[in-house]
């Protein structure tokens, strides 16, 4: 039966990794209509009472691009040698970073910001997480489109490897999603710890080659940047939009492997612990 459920003290805690993954996809399929309706509603609601409405989706990334243009043309940054204009380099890099960071941030805050809905909803809470991710994906279409526009305006030729661009973004998306799931639970019961993680993740921007090249940092910073899996997860998608041969290093593969394992862990932990954690909202 579609709506057959069984709860006991152990049922959720004994959930295995594979069952968690199966439940995840089953939830997406069962509640795809709800995910879509809620995503549409959230997107429209953000701009419904604004005069220029959803045009904000276009203006915000445009302002971002203009800011980077201004800063790089003013010679503020010394990014190291880039084969393409630094403006293009940094705009693509920062868009990839935002793609990851904004997703985890949106998921992490979703429970405490929507506690009433989370507490009283009859449908699986994972559905709300998937809806947040869907909204984020839709929101990111324009910034990525702008990346292509910037590449085109700077006269940089696109190569066939551009077809791999969405695929190489996938590990960043999965990492953002997995981190968001875990941090959302921490936000409920361990506010201090969640704040520390949030600051650390923000600081990771400076250890990730968004506004500098992978080989530019020296000394201890160089080690930290090279040990940071995000360095490879951001660099590789950017390389797909820029000319030149690309090389998927072992570090990238390792990074992807770690992301997939972390996703399984995060998914299982969320399903197993969400009810126990969420009920603390009502105390």
């Amino acid at each position: 039966m579609k709506f057959q459920k069984k709860y006991s003290a152990r049922s959720k805690e004994q959930l295995g990794f594979l069952t968690a993954v199966k439940t995840f996809f089953s939830d997406i399929i069962t509640y795809r209509a709800l995910i879509w309706e809620m995503s549409k509603m959230e997107l429209k609601a953000q701009y419904k009472n604004s005069f220029i409405g959803m045009a904000w989706l276009f203006f915000m990334p445009l302002i971002n691009v203009a800011t980077w243009l201004l800063l790089t043309n003013g010679g503020i940054f010394n990014p190291g040698d880039t084969e393409v204009p630094f403006t293009v380099y940094v705009i693509i890099g920062s868009t990839c970073w935002v793609f990851f960071f904004a997703l985890q941030d949106s998921l992490a805050k979703s429970i405490v910001h929507g506690s009433h809905q989370f507490l009283l909803s009859e449908f699986p809470r994972m559905v709300i997480m998937c809806q947040k991710a869907t909204t984020h994906l839709i929101t990111m279409i324009l910034p990525f489109t702008l990346c292509f526009v910037v590449v085109f305006l700077f006269g940089i030729p696109l190569t066939p490897k551009v077809l791999l661009f969405p695929l190489t973004l996938l590990p960043l998306f999965i990492l953002g999603f997995a981190l968001g799931l875990l941090l959302s639970l921490l936000e409920v019961v361990a506010v201090d710890l969640a704040k520390v993680f949030n600051r650390l993740l923000s600081a990771m921007l400076f250890l990730t080659p968004v506004a500098f090249t992978l080989n530019h940092p020296k000394g201890i910073l160089s080690v930290l940047v090279k040990c940071n899996p995000l360095s490879y997860l951001v660099t590789v998608p950017r390389e797909m939009l820029l000319p030149g041969a690309f090389y998927l290093s072992n570090m990238y593969y390792m990074g992807v492997g770690v992301v997939v394992l972390f996703f399984f862990f995060s998914l299982r932990t969320f399903y197993a612990a969400e009810t126990k954690i969420m009920e603390r909202l009502s105390v």
């Binding site: 039966m1 709506f3 057959q4 459920k5 069984k6 709860y7 006991s8 003290a9 959720k12 507490l119 009283l120 909803s121 009859e122 009810t275 126990k276 969420m278 009920e279």
Partner: peptide, 14 residues
């Protein structure tokens, strides 16, 4: 299913 069960079991068939 909003709260977790600490003891016993609940079965819903609908």
């Amino acid at each position: 299913g909003i709260y977790s069960v600490d003891e016993g079991e609940i079965q819903v068939n609908g």
